[in-house]
Amino acid sequence: MPFAAAIDGTQIAYQVRGEGQPLVLLAGQSNDHTWWDPVRMDFEEQHQTISLDWRGTGSSGKPDEVYSTRAFAQDVVAVLDALGVNSAHIYGTSMGGRVAQWLAIDAPERVDRLVLGCTSPGAAHGYERSQEIRKALADPAKTDSVLLDLMYTPAWLANNAGPYYVLGDKTMPPYAKGRHLVASNRHDAWDGLPGITAPTLILHGTDDVFSPVANAELLAGRIPNARAELIEGARHAYFHEFREVASPAVLAFLGAAQDRA
């Protein structure tokens, strides 16, 4: 597996599949690249897909130090540099969407088109999950069952026994999980959002309470040249359960850039 060297020397594992214009896929909090496994093939005929294991996850280095969504964005740049990719489309979901915001703010020349899925601008200005959800997730014995209910509809779960790829990297050391949680909780890109220059698509499930759907219109109103599309009935893992809606929407948005090229 190839690695990129981050600014601080941490080794960031990355994965490349498919051919075409580069598309970077950014996973959720405490997850590695396998987050995208169920839907990655949807993009590979038209795009070279690039993913990475966040520091603290998968095969990447796991330093016990402060993590931040802004620093995670620097790790993405390190991967692009290692691949010799000057610019790419960026698709980030959940915490990956928070990282994608910083990437578009701090390195606009590296971002062609931006897709933000089931994410928010941060707790200071965005809409956060309820205290009841936070308390339920704090019980290790119930975390997976609570997450599944937040990610998928009961009907879908009844017909899909797994494996599930959105429940976090089980190999993560406890300190790294804590570092990821703090990084996501402290995210606040509000002041930088109006400076994003990349055309932006925002996707969100109407029934998402993990990252409340009100964040979609909030982001769309804050980012210039952005629009929101809501996926009816979807929860947090809209990109998986509702892939027949979500993936074509992303491909159409990204294809619009190629049509004008």
Rank of each mutant, 00 (worst) to 15 (best):
P2V: 07
F3Q: 09
T10R: 02
Q11Y: 07
Q11G: 04
V16A: 03
R17Q: 12
G18L: 14
Q21C: 08
L23P: 07
Q29V: 12
R40P: 01
Q46W: 10
H47R: 11
H47D: 07
Q48D: 04
I50C: 01
I50S: 07
S51H: 02
G56Y: 00
G56P: 04
G61I: 00
K62E: 08
K62I: 07
P63F: 00
T69C: 15
F72H: 11
F72R: 08
A73R: 12
Q74H: 15
D75R: 06
V79E: 06
V79P: 08
V79K: 11
G84R: 14
N86Y: 12
S87R: 14
T93W: 11
T93H: 12
A107S: 15
D112N: 15
P121K: 14
P121W: 10
G122T: 07
E128D: 15
I133L: 15
I133E: 04
A136T: 04
L147S: 13
P154K: 13
N160R: 12
A161Q: 14
G162P: 08
L167C: 09
L167F: 00
G168E: 05
P173R: 12
P173K: 13
P174C: 01
Y175P: 00
R179P: 03
H180T: 01
V182D: 09
A183N: 02
A183D: 08
S184C: 13
N185G: 12
H187E: 07
D188I: 11
T197D: 08
I202H: 05
I202P: 11
I202A: 07
T206H: 01
P212D: 06
N215L: 10
A216K: 02
L218S: 03
A220D: 11
G221R: 10
R222Y: 03
R222W: 09
A228C: 06
H236F: 05
H240M: 09
A246H: 02
A249P: 02
L251G: 01
L254F: 00
D259T: 10
A261P: 11
